[in-house]
Design a protein around this nucleic acid. Structure first.
Lengths: 208, 208
DNA sequence: AACTTAGATGAAGAAAGCTTCAGTTTAGGA
DNA sequence: TCCTAAACTGAAGCTTTCTTCATCTAAGTT
């Protein structure tokens, strides 16, 4: 009857000495590698520990359960993207909507593409019950930043800024995902990057 | 040792009598319901069977394994969307790129929104190893249809039609997903629908 | 050097859910 | 009506993977 054993926990123990910090880093890195190599379905805590060069017990000393481990990795990655979006939103206040859109897309892509492999590997995690929450959180963060930026535009938008922000987020997420998952044939990526800027700019222009 | 055990199988048995056809339909419908109610993580074959009013054994008579069951449901749904896209692409040959974009988006949304609940429930399935293939297949189908349509545009595009098609697909997928997953506060949907048309039209206009 | 706390280990317990199959019921033709 | 094949049933086997914990080693302190 007791409803669940909380699924979202903080690290069980905080690293104090140097070696434990190294273990945590190794575990996170190993998780990403295993995710890429065998996929989420075949990722087991034992396998991750082995890859990290530690024992399962050690893994469980820092992550209360498998779900928390996956969440931590996902959060790490999305946090980087959210930071990039927030920084860009801060840096381009007061400009034209078009300039904002371009800056936003550029920052987003740079963050995403700086760790292409991680991005791809994490798509499978982001749709889990657990991952969903993390994605949503980060989505809200980015949304707030974009809205704040748009409000300072030197040229007013005809559409609600919240709507514009949502659409921009949808565009970026959708096109970039397609870009990454299409086994990107080399030049495909740079090509779609350019297109993404075209889309975003054309959209905000149409919304003025 | 034996790696294989094929994951993508045809129905184990083809329905012959009326009652078995009914069972299959009930199972598919039940899968969708269970998916919505408890999510993919807690979806078990036994639970699906119970909901469908049959026994697990019956379920396994038509679906070789859990994965195939999920795939079948996903395929059913995406097939509807792909059909809509193909029909629209066929019906709007020779028009302007803008008209095409608008028609495309409209058809896509109509198909997606006609079964909002199913759409939402299936996002969690589409990222599994198994689901991925189905999504990719349908993506290719839609892509081919859109490309064929764009080639007949009465006003040439400055960008490769394949690229334009990919971007349009990315836009539609990204924005609609955001629409559905944001707990859509009623008017949100119609609002974003309008925006999606704006985005698509603005983009193709910019690509002329 | 002795002591204390942090960190690491991995065999084994326990839960969970998929899948099977031997046996039973139902449908429809001869 | 009788018979054969299609359908259905569901308890139980089997596998898999998560998670724990008693025990051991390393680090830092006095």
């Amino acid at each position: 009857m007791a409803e669940p054993a909380q699924r979202t926990l903080k690290p069980r123990k905080r690293p104090v000495q140097a070696r434990s910090t190294a273990s945590v880093a190794a575990i996170l890195e190993a998780t990403l590698q295993v995710l890429l190599e065998v996929g989420k379905e075949r990722l087991t805590t034992t396998r991750v520990a082995a890859r990290a060069g530690v024992s399962v017990g050690t893994l469980y000393q820092y992550f209360p359960n498998k779900s928390a481990l996956l969440q931590a990795v996902l959060r790490d990655h999305l946090d980087g993207v959210a930071r990039a979006v927030e920084a860009a939103s801060q840096a381009h206040r007061g400009e034209t909507p078009q300039a904002m859109a371009k800056a936003l897309v550029t920052a987003f892509l740079k963050a995403k593409l700086s760790r292409v492999e991680a991005s791809k590997a994490l798509y499978s995690v982001s749709d889990d019950v657990d991952g969903g929450k993390v994605v949503a959180e980060m989505g809200v963060r980015s949304h707030a930043a974009i809205v704040a930026m748009l409000k300072t535009a030197n040229k007013p938008l005809a559409t609600r800024v919240e709507t514009v922000a949502s659409v921009l987020q949808g565009i970026m997420a959708g096109v970039s995902r397609r870009m990454l998952e299409s086994g990107y044939p080399e030049g495909q990526v740079s090509s779609l990057s350019r297109e993404l800027i075209v889309v975003a700019c054309a959209y905000v222009r149409a919304s003025c």
